[in-house]
């Protein structure tokens, strides 16, 4: 059992989708619509200016900016960074209470109720996409009126992160079941993907060779972030070779 995968443990790899995301960096305009969509979809509390200045704001997806050249001859590159849902995630084995592990669909899941807040996973994430709840979450009036009932609110003291909108995956599966059909490519759209005006992000099942995400991964333009660390991320970035 040198290389155990979650699908081997939980059942047949064929029958479960293997979720992945492809992001075309050449399309990304850095508009941060995905950041806003994510925050409202996933009940991410606002930090307020004081706490944000201290580095306590939460963005499950963030836009990293890279500058090339000197002003005014400057080029900016944007890279949306979210949880990479690594197949060999460094954050998982270090948790003493199994608050995070790999599920059969390749999601790196975070169980808030189990978390005791050692923050070891957050340290061990090379992408720094795990967030800690410093306080009991609060929303400025009237933001609490738009909370998403499908997403739990995380108490103080636990770590949270992007879930690939696991609740939307669940909803799509239930809908497909109700309509008595197979889950089709494009049925699942995380909030960030749905809100991207440039359609830079694509989400789907990478075990299905005909899915859009599989085709983008196979396009020859794709790369993984910090792939040299061997974390095998499920987020693929596409950019022109330059």
């Amino acid at each position: 059992m040198a290389d155990t995968t979650a699908s081997q443990v939980e059942g047949d790899a064929q029958s479960v989708p293997q979720w992945a995301m492809a992001i075309d960096l050449d399309r990304c305009t850095g508009c941060e619509a995905c950041v806003l969509a994510c925050s409202s979809e996933n009940n991410i509390p606002t930090a307020g200016p004081d706490q944000a200045a201290k580095g306590r704001s939460k963005q499950w997806i963030r836009i990293d900016r890279y500058y090339e050249g000197e002003f005014p001859d400057i080029k900016v590159k944007y890279r949306p960074v979210l949880c990479q849902q690594c197949d060999e995630a460094p954050c998982e084995p270090v948790c003493p209470v199994f608050a995070t592990y790999q599920n059969a669909e390749g999601l790196n899941v975070q169980i808030y109720n189990r978390c005791i807040g050692t923050r070891y996973c957050a340290n061990n994430c090379p992408y720094t996409v795990r967030f800690f709840n410093w306080f009991t979450p609060e929303w400025d009036d009237p933001l609490e009126l738009q909370l998403n009932p499908d997403v739990s609110i995380r108490p103080a003291g636990v770590v949270e992160k992007c879930t690939f909108c696991a609740h939307r995956i669940k909803r799509a599966k239930l809908d497909a079941e109700a309509e008595d059909r197979e889950l089709a490519d494009g049925d699942v759209q995380p909030a960030c993907v749905q809100s991207c005006p440039a359609e830079a992000m694509v989400f789907g099942d990478k075990s299905d060779p005909d899915s859009r995400v599989s085709k983008m991964i196979a396009s020859g333009r794709s790369e993984q972030l910090l792939s040299e660390l061997g974390t095998k991320p499920r987020v693929f970035y596409l950019s022109k070779a330059d």
Partner: peptide, 23 residues
Amino acid sequence: HIGRVWLFYWMIPYPNERLLWPN
């Protein structure tokens, strides 16, 4: 150091109602 100190005993291995052992 931990965020939810009142749950520190979740790290201790004993048969429990959560049906979950530590890692």
